[in-house]
């Protein structure tokens, strides 16, 4: 089982966009190590012949007709926005690019 390192936790925090403090990274590294060790137990029985279940009750082909439904009003859509400019949501400068 791979040991969980502080660097790894910092990387995970970056992927998860959480600006963890150094203290949090330290405590999470320890906790995560313990939890991962405990949950790795699933590998004992997860043999290749067992199929994965993603949904508890199997369903398929659940579709919606292509019919327009009333949208929110612009005011409703923006009602919770921390910042806005006119009818658009306003966000700080984007430096990283997708």
């Amino acid at each position: 089982m791979p040991e969980i390192t502080a660097e790894q936790v910092a990387h995970l925090a970056h992927l998860a966009r959480i600006d963890l403090s150094q203290d949090e990274i330290t405590s999470l590294t320890a906790e995560l190590g313990q939890i991962v060790e405990a949950v790795a137990k699933v590998q004992e029985v997860a043999t290749p012949d067992v199929a994965a279940t993603s949904h508890p009750i199997p369903l398929s082909n659940v579709f919606r007709p292509d019919t327009v439904v009333e949208s929110l009003t612009v005011e409703q859509a923006l009602s919770g926005a921390p910042d806005r400019d006119g009818d658009k949501f306003k966000v700080p400068a984007i430096l990283d690019e997708e």
Binding site: R64, D66, T67, V68, V69, E70, S71, L72, V74, A77, L78, G86, D87, K88, F89
Partner: peptide, 23 residues
């Protein structure tokens, strides 16, 4: 399509900002 992929909001180009949105 008339509506978006995963909701019933209209799929229209050139409408007022954030008029075709839902939860």
């Amino acid at each position: 399509t008339k509506t978006k992929m995963f909701c019933g909001c209209a799929n229209e180009f050139g409408q007022g900002a954030n008029t075709n949105t839902c939860p």
